[in-house]
Design a protein around this nucleic acid. Structure first.
Length: 394
DNA sequence: AATTCGTGGTC
DNA sequence: TGACCAAGAAT
């Protein structure tokens, strides 16, 4: 029977043997001690019989499709990705078509999926593949990792699924599986813990069959070794799982230390002229980077307040003369790391100036809001304005 | 190395 | 209903 070794003991074992293998780097000694061919065999056998085999980006070795899916799946659940993936692939069937597309169209197809730097980097990456790699994705994860938006884990997944390259992933699924199987009693977001897991990930790679192994780790994490109520009774790793043996699957992996979520406020202006609305492109840095959104002014300002009128005039001066100003129903939007209170004002223009505004400001037809590159809450607000305006009045 | 990046589902 | 978090990367 296999000896149960917890994390602390494993680390102690490796450090104890460092002096016996001075010719090898400490990292290699460590990796050798962590190796266990039966681990990958259990994962591969399970994946072939019980894993997922019909996801839209499976059953292909087209690196473009694999890459697109891996980028979309970063910090995003499969169910949320599927419709985006299909629409995206329909519009941009090849890396060349994506590279040649206008950035606004790329952003529009990402609108609502979140983490918009992924979309900007996706576009840059497509252009780099066309310009520097003859339109062919490299099979070497080291080369892949040099491309925008592709980190170590994503590079390995692309290389493994597209070319069968033997490379290790370390995503949220793998971290959760490792934390439980090996009884890791520290938060995996911690750098030292993550480094330790990378050593394991490399050491546990199979000699062959990296595709089924990689998919199997993801499938285990997504379907059995879930965050809550894992299905240990069906898990191929249960007999070697420390968390299962010690009844600690509910505590592992250790949760991220929580801290108070800051709250912010903003005022959004719905400056409307007939059937058009004024939008502006947000800078690449910061929240909703690169998307279109509504013009904003300081949240402390209220109508009737002289400062509000000044700010309003400043915001609209280049575009027209405000007529009516109506405060709409406030709402809030919760991000992972802060909560944003939004106060929208609907402003109709008495006169729209013909002079050209800043290049970042543009008038958009209201009937195109559904396909505009907007943040989710802004898109929802504007679609409500178009279809059910009564819901917005206080 | 710890933060900053979205959104929708789950409990 | 608010806390938690998912196929991470960039800084």
């Amino acid at each position: 029977m296999k000896r149960v070794v917890n994390e602390q003991q494993a680390v102690a074992d490796s450090s104890g043997q460092k002096t016996n293998a001075k010719k090898l780097a400490a990292k290699d000694v460590h990796a050798a001690n962590l190796a266990d061919p039966s681990f990958s065999k259990d994962v591969i056998d399970w994946q072939k019989q019980h894993g997922r085999h019909a996801l839209p980006w499976q059953n292909t070795r087209d690196a473009y499709r694999v890459w697109l899916s891996e980028i979309m799946l970063q910090q995003t659940q499969v169910a949320a990705v599927i419709p985006y993936y299909q629409r995206f692939l329909q519009t941009f069937p090849t890396v060349e078509s994506l590279a040649a597309a206008p950035s606004e169209e790329v952003m529009a197809h990402w609108s609502g999926l979140g983490y918009y730097s992924r979309a900007r980097n996706l576009h840059k990456c497509a252009q780099a593949i066309v310009a520097q790699h003859a339109g062919v994705f490299p099979g070497d994860p080291v080369i892949l990792e040099e491309l925008p938006g592709i980190g170590r884990s994503t590079a390995a997944a692309i290389a493994a699924f597209s070319y069968g390259t033997r490379a290790a992933i370390l995503d949220g699924n793998v971290k959760r599986v490792f934390a439980r199987v090996f009884g890791v009693e520290r938060y995996p977001g911690e750098k030292a813990v993550e480094n330790e897991m990378w050593l394991r990930a490399v050491a546990l790679l199979p000699a062959t069959g990296v595709e089924a192994y990689t998919q199997g780790l993801m499938d285990l994490g997504a379907t059995l070794c879930t965050r809550n109520r894992p299905s240990c009774n069906r898990c191929p790793l249960a007999q070697r799982c420390i968390a299962y043996a010690t009844n600690r699957t509910n505590e592992l992996p250790i949760r991220k230390p929580k801290k108070a979520v800051p709250e912010k406020s903003t005022v959004m202006l719905l400056i409307i002229d007939d059937d058009q609305i004024l939008l502006e492109q947000r800078p690449d840095k910061g929240i909703w980077g690169g998307l279109l959104s509504l013009p904003e002014i300081d949240a402390a300002l209220e109508p009737g307040n002289a400062d509000f009128d000044v700010a309003l005039m400043r915001a609209t001066a280049a575009f027209g003369v405000p007529d009516s100003v109506e405060k709409l129903t406030e709402f809030s939007h919760t991000f992972t790391h802060f909560k944003l209170h939004i106060t929208p004002y609907r402003i109709s223009l008495a006169r729209r100036l013909k002079i050209a505004g800043q290049s970042s400001h543009n008038w958009y037809p209201l009937h195109r809001m559904a396909v505009a590159p907007l943040p989710a809450p802004v898109k929802k607000l504007l679609l409500t304005l178009v279809h059910e305006p009564d819901l917005l009045s206080e």
